[in-house]
């Protein structure tokens, strides 16, 4: 059994996509939790979905990070409940301090909506253990602010601790400035916290989880979560 909770902010627009993906992949329907609630139900994992919470006012994710439910999400994450933030959810995780760094305007200034290739850098953590380190997967991005920024010391620490989960690359797995769609430092597409149980990623795994959608590489995020929960049971 997988008890997942999807947090719904005003302006979230991938909340029902990720709910459907989790239900179809794991067989267990997540609970939808309104941002104004004070507490998250007992959960094996919490999802902060993509979208434009609070209309991206002030900074992407800044208002959502201070919404009532986030106090409990932060407390649960610190107590060990796994949290995945996808796209706007990644921005919320950074704004709330659960992950380091910030997501800035894409270097090109364009909103980019297309499939990209990712190199898997971490195959050990709660949401990534069904991938293999070094493999190249295809997952879509859809964002205007996905340009990951952190100071050099933070980047070195993330790399040294194996906390870079995914990097942008081309279909051959080449990681370079040319294969980075948004200007993210060191091609970073996703990172984890120091326990590996909080993952933030700009690409949308919930959009490519069955062949009818054009690919299945996003599936294993949710299969990893289910496996992690079953292993711990």
């Amino acid at each position: 059994m997988l008890r997942a909770s999807v947090i719904v902010f005003p302006g979230s627009n991938c909340d029902r996509d990720v709910k459907t993906a989790i239900e179809r992949i794991t067989g267990f329907a997540p609970k939808m939790v309104w941002h104004g609630d004070a507490a998250v139900p007992v959960s094996d994992m919490i999802v902060l979905p993509g979208g434009f919470s609070y209309g991206d006012y002030l900074r992407c994710g800044a208002m959502a990070a201070h919404s009532p439910i986030m106090k409990d999400v932060v407390a649960r994450a610190k107590a060990g409940t796994p949290v995945i933030g996808i796209c706007n959810g990644f921005q919320v995780l950074c704004e709330s301090g659960l992950l380091p760094g910030a997501l800035m305007r894409n270097a090109s200034l364009h909103f980019i909506c297309r499939d990209v290739f990712l190199k898997v850098e971490d195959d050990q953590s709660f949401f990534t253990k069904c991938y293999r380190k070094g493999e190249v997967i295809k997952v879509p991005i859809a964002h205007g602010e996905g340009n990951f920024f952190a100071d050099e010391a933070t980047l070195d620490r993330l790399e040294g601790d194996g906390r870079v989960a995914f990097r942008y690359c081309n279909e051959h797995g080449d990681v370079s400035p040319e294969t980075c769609p948004n200007g993210a430092q060191r091609n970073i597409a996703g990172i984890t916290n120091d326990t590996g149980r909080v993952l933030g990623m700009m690409p949308h795994p919930e959009r490519l989880y069955e062949s009818a959608l054009g690919g299945t590489d996003g599936r294993r995020i949710f299969e990893s979560a289910l496996l992690s929960v079953l292993e711990a049971a």
């Binding site: 900074r59 201070h66 704004e95 910030a102 920024f149």
Partner: peptide
């Protein structure tokens, strides 16, 4: 500090 600026950037 808490809201208006993101002091990372």
């Amino acid at each position: 500090k808490d809201l208006l600026a993101n002091t990372v950037i």
